[in-house]
Nucleic acid binder design. Structure first.
Length: 125
DNA sequence: TTGTTGACTCTGA
DNA sequence: CTCAGAGCCAACA
């Protein structure tokens, strides 16, 4: 799979390493990807090839909600994917990030040619 | 090259 | 907790 740029490739490597049953926010992916802003991560997700193996459904916004996309209602599919992995949604359609949020130390398992283990750990609570 | 857009986040009220 | 507004930066016209 050839991606549009090394920028996107970095994001996709991070997303692919999110464990099943966990979710990460755009901002978190942005931090791990070192130099990006959350919007760029969202932009990259919109450009994910439909035939890829990237678990884009595990990336949600900072409120713990599925981000509304500009077209269509693919968000419903995303929610079904996550529920199939055991993630529960509350009445407002929100995920409890304290339970299902991806903790940065897990990213030791990331296998990528770019990954730099010396990153700030801020989201570890 | 300038202007708009967007699967976002932060801050203040 | 929620709601607005400002800021963000790559992609696109």
């Amino acid at each position: 799979m050839v991606y549009k740029s090394s920028l996107y490739k970095r994001i996709y490597v991070v997303v692919r390493n999110i464990p099943p049953g966990k979710v990460a926010t755009y901002g978190q992916v942005a931090k791990i990807s070192v130099v990006l802003h959350a919007r760029i991560v969202g932009y990259a997700m919109a450009a994910v090839p439909p035939d890829s193996d990237i678990p884009w459904q595990r990336v949600i916004n900072h409120q713990g909600k599925i981000s509304p996309r500009s077209s269509g209602n693919g968000g419903t599919i995303q929610r079904q994917y996550l529920e199939a992995e055991g993630i529960r949604f509350d009445r407002n359609g929100r995920v409890d990030l304290k339970i299902y949020g991806w903790k940065y130390p897990d990213s030791e398992r990331i296998e990528g040619d770019f990954f730099n283990p010396e990153l700030p750990l801020e989201d570890t609570k």
